[in-house]
Design a protein around this nucleic acid. Structure first.
Lengths: 238, 238
DNA sequence: GTGACGTTTCGGCGCACACCGAAGTGGGCG
DNA sequence: CGCCCACTTCGGTGTGCGCCGAAACGTCAC
C-alpha cells in the first residue's frame, strides 16, 4: 500500500476540502441528525447546492442518511468519522479572528465553557472533568491514556455500564479546539456525557452543541470530582 | 469557534486533497528529508509543479524546509503532522487494487511485513511487537492505551531512555494501514524504532520505508517478547 | 571563466467543480 | 383532489488550480 494510496487519501481529503462541506461536517459533530434544509441554511447555500454536497459526503462514506417522508436526515457515519473530523479540526491554526457581533461573542463563550464533541464532553467543562479524573487517579495520562482500576470502579459506582469488546477504545484523548488540551473520548467519554444528560448534570442550550451545567450537576461534580462550581465556566488560565 | 472554522478546516484539507500532494505527504511518512527533485520523480510530476506544491505545503505548515546549496530539503513538520496524515490514511477504504507487476507485488509484500511509519515500527512486525507487549503485560490496551509499570521497566532494562515532560504522549495507538490493527506510536514507539535500528534488529532496505529483520533482531525479539522468527514475515491471519 | 544541474518564475492551457435559478418529483395534509 | 413544501435534476456560468514548457536564477565543479 501507501505507494498507490496517494489518490485515495486525496479523495478523502477532497471531501473536507470545501468550506461548505467542512462546515456541514463540523455541524454534525453535535452527534445528531440534521435535515438537508437545516444544513443548507447553516452553511448559507441553496438547497440544490446542499443536495450535491450531501450526495458526495454520503457517497464518500462520511455521512449516513435516513429518508423519512419528504425529509432527508444525515448524520456522521460513526464515531470514527467524528474522530477524523475532530483530529483535522484540532490541527487548524487558531487565528485571531475578530468577533463581529455581541451575539456571536456570547455564543462563542458559551461553546468554550461547555459543549458536546460528537458524543462526549468538551470545552472547559470537558477538559476540567478530564483533569480532575486524572488527579483523582481515575485516569492515567502519564504513560498513555487509559482508565485505571479506580476509574473502572468509579464508573461502576455511578451505575454507568461501559460496554467492552467492540473495536472502539474504552478511553481515548481528543484534543479540545478551544482549550488545546485533551479531554476524555471513546466509550467512557460517550457514557459519561450520556449519564450527564440523563442525570440532569447539564442540559443543551439552543439547538446546537452548547451545554449549561445545572445546579444539580455542579453539586454532583463537586462531590464526585471536587470540581469547583465554575468548572464549566472558568477559562483555562493557569 | 467551530461555527466559523469551516473555511479553516477546508483549507487544511485542501492541502491533502490533491493526489500529487498527498503522495508527497505519504512519502515523507518515512520521517526523512527529501529533495524537491526526489519528490517530483516519486510523484511523477515536473520540477515546476513540485515546486508549487511544496510552496503550499510549507506555507500551510505541514512541511518544514531546509535549503542547502542548490538543494531544497523538506520533511514533515513534526510528529503531530505525521499523526494527522496517518489518521487520514487509516480512514481510506482499502480497495482491491490489482497488482500490476511482479516488482510492485514484491515491494508491497516487503512493506506489509515490516516498515517504518514516520518514526515508529509498522506493518506485521509493528503489530506483532505491539501485541506481544500487550500479552506480556508491558502495554495495557484494555482500558485505553498506555505503558504499564512493567513496560517502563522493560524499556529501562533495555537501556532505552524515554524522555517525558513534552506534549507528546508516551504511548499512542496508530492504526496500521495494512494490518488494520493498532501498533505502538508516541514517544515509546519512536524510542523503540530508534533502538531497533541502533541495535541492529532491523535495517532499511531500498531507499524507502521497508525494513528487514536481521538474524540478530529475530533472536533478540524472540528472547525479549517471545516473537516467532517469522514475526515480521507472517501475515496477520488469525 | 564555462558548463552542468537543481530550483524557481512566468505564461498559458484545460478541466473540475461550486454555485445558482428554474423546473420537476413526490410525500404529507387539508 | 389540490396545495404546500422538502428535495432533486438540469443547464449554464465563473473560477480556481493543477499541469507543463520555456526561460531565468543560483550554486557547485572544473
Amino acid at each position: 500500500m501507501s505507494d498507490t494510496d496517494g489518490p485515495h487519501l486525496a479523495a478523502l481529503a477532497a471531501l473536507l476540502a470545501d468550506p461548505t462541506r467542512s462546515t456541514m461536517c463540523l455541524a454534525l459533530l453535535d452527534g445528531r441528525a440534521w435535515t438537508l434544509s437545516e444544513l443548507a441554511r447553516h452553511a448559507r447555500v441553496s438547497a440544490p447546492t446542499a443536495s450535491e454536497h450531501l450526495n458526495r459526503l454520503v457517497e464518500g462514506g462520511l455521512f449516513t442518511e435516513v429518508r423519512q417522508g419528504r425529509h432527508r436526515y444525515v448524520r456522521l457515519a460513526g464515531s470514527e468519522t467524528a474522530y477524523l473530523v475532530e483530529t483535522m479540526a484540532g490541527h487548524t491554526v487558531p487565528e485571531r479572528r475578530p468577533v463581529r457581533s455581541l451575539a456571536q461573542s456570547a455564543r462563542r463563550r458559551a461553546l468554550a465553557r461547555a459543549r458536546t464533541c460528537y458524543d462526549h464532553l468538551a470545552g472547559a467543562l470537558g477538559v476540567n472533568v478530564t483533569r480532575a479524573m486524572s488527579e483523582r487517579g481515575l485516569l492515567g495520562q502519564e504513560t498513555g491514556f487509559a482508565l485505571t482500576g479506580a476509574g473502572l470502579d468509579w464508573f461502576a459506582d455511578l451505575g454507568i455500564d461501559l460496554p467492552t469488546g467492540g473495536r472502539r477504545p474504552l478511553a481515548r484523548p481528543c484534543l479540545d479546539w478551544t482549550e488545546r488540551r485533551p479531554h476524555l473520548a471513546g466509550v467512557a467519554g460517550a457514557a459519561l456525557l450520556s449519564h450527564a444528560l440523563d442525570a440532569g448534570w447539564c442540559v443543551r442550550i439552543g439547538g446546537g452543541r452548547a451545554l449549561r451545567v445545572t445546579d444539580r450537576g455542579a453539586r454532583d461534580l463537586a462531590d464526585l470530582l471536587g470540581l469547583g462550581t465554575s468548572a464549566g465556566a472558568e477559562t483555562s488560565a493557569p
